[in-house]
Computed example of a mutant assay.
Amino acid sequence: MTSEDPIRIETLLADDIDEPLARSVSELLCRVWPKPGRTVETRVEQFLAERGVYQGPPEQAPRSFLIREGSKPIAFSSILSRTIRTEAGRMTIAGLAKVCTDPEQRGHGLGEKIVRAALAPIDDGSFPLVLFQTDVSVQPFYEKLGSRRVENRIVNSLADDPEADAFWHPVIMIYPKEAQWPEGTIDLQGPGY
């Protein structure tokens, strides 16, 4: 992508993602975040399984954000709606997931643009905050965008081992940094993202 190209960010609901798009995004995700057992096929299945499932308020519907070069996905992010259990009670928040930029396209500001798109539903009041995990090396990037690190233990009471960590990255963050956030253990009431 050159500096003269306009950057267009597409907003996609789960039902907007058909099999060819799911496949091309899954290929990007697998290149950027290779994980044992997470193949292009398993990721495609996950995208397609999310179609027609969400039943909540439209402004909190899970959505993805996509930047393409031609028809090729080069940056992607998603938010999902998650009701978590905290020591202060239940909260419906956004979860930030699947943030990636094609390695060949890094250094052009696409990561910031795709994350800012995902944060817009928090900025417009659709969610009180977003909770996500990341690596130490990426923490300053998210801090620059207005996030802060939190130290809560994150579990999934619905897992086979309900006391195990639900997140696998060492840094847990929320956005915006000034959001009210409870102390104590956070139960995602579902798998990590």
Rank of each mutant, 00 (worst) to 15 (best):
A75T: 06
P128C: 05
I172E: 01
T101E: 09
E45H: 08
P57M: 12
T101D: 11
A49K: 07
D16E: 15
L29F: 14
F47I: 07
H169I: 04
F65N: 07
P176L: 02
S71R: 01
S24H: 09
F141G: 11
L96Y: 09
S78P: 05
P191R: 08
I172C: 03
S3T: 14
G89W: 05
I154G: 10
L110M: 13
N156I: 00
P170F: 04
Q189I: 05
V150I: 11
A118F: 11
G52F: 05
E19K: 14
G56W: 05
S64V: 05
R116M: 01
L96S: 12
L131G: 14
D18K: 11
G192L: 01
K98V: 07
R68T: 05
F167Y: 12
K177M: 05
T185H: 01
N156L: 08
C30D: 07
I122P: 10
F65R: 10
A14E: 05
I79S: 08
S71N: 13
I17Y: 04
D165G: 01
G125R: 08
F167T: 02
R38F: 03
R68Q: 10
S137F: 14
A94F: 10
A61N: 09
C100N: 03
R148Y: 02
L21F: 08
D161Y: 04
I7R: 14
Q105H: 10
L110V: 07
L131I: 13
A166M: 06
T86L: 01
E151T: 11
Q55W: 10
W181A: 00
W181H: 00
P128E: 04
E163S: 14
P128S: 03
W33I: 03
D165L: 01
I74H: 09
G52V: 01
Y193K: 08
E183N: 09
V32M: 15
M1N: 15
L21N: 14
D5V: 12
R85M: 13
V130L: 02
I186G: 03
R68C: 04
I114F: 11
Q139W: 12
I17Q: 02
A61L: 08
A120L: 13
Q189L: 14
A14P: 06
